Amino acid sequence: MTHQAIDREAFNPSTALAVQTVTRVRHLTDRLFSFAISRPPSFRFRSGEFVMVGLPGEGKPLLRAYSIASPAYADELEFLSIKLEDGPLTSRLQHIRSGDPVYLGRKPTGTLVTDALLPGRRLFLLSTGTGIAPFMSLVRDPDVYAHFAEIVLVHSVREVADLAWRDVLEGQLAGDPLVQDEALLQFHYLPTVTREPFRTQGRIARLVESGILFERVSGPRRFDPEGDRVMLCGSMAMIRDHAADLEARGFVEGSNSRPGQFVIERAFVG
């Protein structure tokens, strides 16, 4: 396979890319897979950030931004990806196996970080599809539990099989070495499915409008800019609609240089 041709000696500490090794691959469905790679000892990131990952292309590396799903303390970096047969990168990346080399960017970045939010009481993480990935890092970060009294992770997908990390999240992160005690009291997981029967059905907008989103948390049964903070990650349509809704409710979008009451990852949505 062509991705086996990466030259492990063709980089040095001054280059933008390093070569890392695939440590495991998990195929969730015929449309979705996760993979983990070795982590350089010098690689540091903030929970919620993304980094460039890729394979050799025609004349230059073929790279794509992937949100890091791993907690900041992990020895490996995990990512979640869709499978596209005609995708320039994913058509090949979906066939990687343990032991294969991949490119890893050296500079993680992003706005789905707590630094881009003002202090608040409730943190809502609203995701669709692979947009759950950065939130998997955030919900395993002790600092998040220190900054917010309650954390709500919503994951909306088409089919039940698309609920990545469902077993871990339904167990309220039991076994996590750093946050399991806090998660039992502060963390809430709300999966919802749109195209087949499930205990919670419908898009995130329905959960907001009906009040289902707020049933497990204390406080108002609506978004409140005074104490609520929101992160959005997923389809462009979801982000556009919910960003507009939040702004109509008085929320102000934040950034690394100017924290606000909600954030999106603009590197992904343009």
Rank of each mutant, 00 (worst) to 15 (best):
92 R>S: 08
120 G>F: 06
107 K>Y: 01
123 L>S: 10
85 E>D: 15
124 F>Y: 15
72 A>E: 14
119 P>G: 13
107 K>F: 03
102 V>I: 10
122 R>N: 02
76 E>F: 02
87 G>H: 10
72 A>C: 13
84 L>K: 15
107 K>I: 02
70 S>W: 11
75 D>M: 07
121 R>A: 06
74 A>I: 03
89 L>E: 03
79 F>Y: 08
77 L>V: 05
76 E>S: 11
99 G>V: 09
86 D>L: 09
100 D>Q: 08
115 D>F: 01
120 G>N: 03
74 A>N: 14
70 S>Q: 14
104 L>P: 01
117 L>R: 09
91 S>E: 07
82 I>G: 08
90 T>K: 10
116 A>Q: 13
113 V>A: 00
70 S>K: 10
77 L>S: 11
71 P>G: 13
103 Y>I: 04
76 E>C: 04
99 G>W: 09
68 I>W: 07
80 L>Q: 05
82 I>Y: 10
87 G>C: 05
74 A>W: 07
88 P>F: 04
102 V>P: 01
79 F>Q: 05
105 G>C: 05
88 P>M: 04
99 G>M: 08
118 L>V: 02
106 R>F: 02
90 T>C: 04
101 P>F: 02
92 R>C: 01
82 I>Q: 13
100 D>N: 11
96 I>D: 01
118 L>E: 15
74 A>T: 08
120 G>P: 10
103 Y>H: 07
94 Q>W: 06
104 L>I: 03
77 L>E: 06
111 T>N: 07
73 Y>W: 14
92 R>F: 12
77 L>Y: 12
123 L>M: 09
73 Y>A: 15
81 S>M: 04
86 D>F: 10
93 L>H: 12
71 P>N: 14
112 L>T: 04
74 A>E: 15
95 H>P: 00
80 L>F: 09
77 L>F: 12
68 I>F: 11
71 P>H: 14
66 Y>A: 07
122 R>S: 02
74 A>R: 13
119 P>C: 06
70 S>A: 13
78 E>Q: 14
88 P>E: 11
117 L>W: 13
68 I>Y: 11
67 S>H: 10
81 S>N: 09
106 R>H: 05
78 E>Y: 03
120 G>T: 07
104 L>K: 02
84 L>S: 13
119 P>A: 08
79 F>K: 14
81 S>P: 01
71 P>E: 14
110 G>N: 08
